[in-house]
Simulated assay, not measured.
Amino acid sequence: MTACFVLSSSPSKTITQHSTQLFSSSGLVDIQAISRDTPGSSYDLLLDWLRAKGATVNDNLCFQPSSRGGGYGAFVTDNVAKGEILVEIPRSACVTLDNVKNDPDSGEVFQKLMTQAGPGGNTVALAGILAKKRLVALAKGSEAIEYGPYFDTLPWERGINSQEHMLFWSDEDVDTFMKGTMCYSEAKSLREEVDLAISVLNKIIGKSILTARGELSETDSGFNFPWDPKPEPLKQIIDGLPEAVRGAFVCLLTRAFQDGDDDDEDAEKLVPWLDMLQHSDEPNIRHAMRKDDGTVEVRAGRDLQAGEELFNQYRSEKDETMPYHRFFTRYGFVPGIEENIADLLKDKSSIFVAQKAEV
Rank of each mutant, 00 (worst) to 15 (best):
M1H: 09
M1N: 06
S8V: 13
S10K: 13
P11L: 02
K13Y: 08
Q17C: 12
Q17A: 11
H18M: 14
T20S: 14
S26I: 14
G27M: 10
D30T: 02
Q32R: 15
R36G: 11
D37S: 15
T38E: 12
T38N: 10
S41T: 09
L45V: 12
D48L: 12
L50T: 01
R51I: 14
R51E: 10
G54I: 11
G54N: 08
G54S: 06
N60I: 06
N60T: 09
L61W: 02
C62D: 08
F63V: 02
Q64R: 13
Y72A: 15
T77L: 06
N79S: 02
A81M: 00
V87Y: 03
E88T: 00
A93L: 14
A93C: 15
T96L: 02
L97F: 08
N102D: 10
D103K: 02
D103N: 05
D103R: 07
P104N: 04
D105N: 15
D105Y: 15
D105S: 15
D105T: 14
G107Y: 02
V109R: 11
Q111E: 15
G120W: 12
T123P: 00
L126W: 06
L126A: 04
L126Q: 03
A127V: 00
I129L: 01
A131L: 02
K132L: 01
R134G: 09
V136E: 06
K140V: 03
E143H: 08
I145V: 12
P149R: 04
P149E: 08
P149K: 06
F151Q: 10
F151S: 10
L154T: 07
N161V: 10
Q163C: 15
E172R: 11
F177A: 12
M178S: 05
A187T: 12
S189Y: 09
L190M: 10
R191K: 07
R191W: 04
A197H: 01
I204H: 08
I205V: 09
S208F: 00
S208G: 04
I209Q: 13
I209M: 13
L210F: 00
T219C: 05
D220P: 03
G222P: 00
P229H: 04
E232V: 01
D239F: 07
P242S: 06
E243Q: 15
E243W: 07
A244L: 00
G247D: 02
C251F: 08
C251M: 07
L252M: 07
T254Q: 10
R255L: 01
A256H: 07
F257D: 14
Q258M: 09
D262W: 11
D262V: 13
D262N: 12
E265L: 10
D266H: 14
D266L: 12
A267C: 15
K269R: 15
L270G: 03
V271P: 05
P272V: 06
L277Y: 07
Q278H: 06
D281H: 15
P283S: 02
H287Y: 09
A288N: 05
D292T: 05
E297I: 13
E297M: 09
D303N: 09
L304G: 06
E308A: 03
E309W: 13
N312D: 11
Q313T: 03
R315Q: 13
E320T: 11
R330T: 09
R330V: 09
Y331T: 10
V334A: 09
G336L: 04
E338K: 14
E339V: 08
L344D: 04
L344G: 04
L345T: 11
K348T: 03
I351M: 08
V353R: 01
A354N: 08
Q355K: 14
Q355E: 13
K356G: 10
K356W: 08
K356N: 12
A357W: 08
